[in-house]
Amino acid sequence: MSISPETIQHIAKLARLGLNTAQKAAAITQLEQMLGVFDALNTIDVTGVAPLFHPGELALTLRPDVVTEGDQHAAFQAIAPDVSGQMYLVPKVLEAV
């Protein structure tokens, strides 16, 4: 299985990783190597086998609808890179929704 430069570019964009040309080339080599490991998946017949997403077939546990958290913005924003007026700041977002 080979990975094209366009594919790695697309994947890096989805993952929001800024890669330079050399890093992209290295990523292609590494990913292709791992896809080789993945080939072992195809040695097994999985027809009719349901995927197992959680070990032990867990069921969701629920919590009661109770407010347990108070205003902690001071503690959390003390470790934030850029805040003003209790807001987290980021470079201007173009369109609000």
């Binding site: 609808d65 407010v67 958290e69 205003d71 959390f76 924003q77 209790q86």
Partner: peptide
């Protein structure tokens, strides 16, 4: 609901910014 879907923060409308944002 009184609290959020996955946390114990209040869902009240109109609180000051990030006062109802828990970990």
């Amino acid at each position: 609901t009184a609290s959020k879907i996955f946390s114990g923060s209040a869902t009240r409308y109109g609180a000051t910014a990030n006062a109802q944002a828990s970990a």
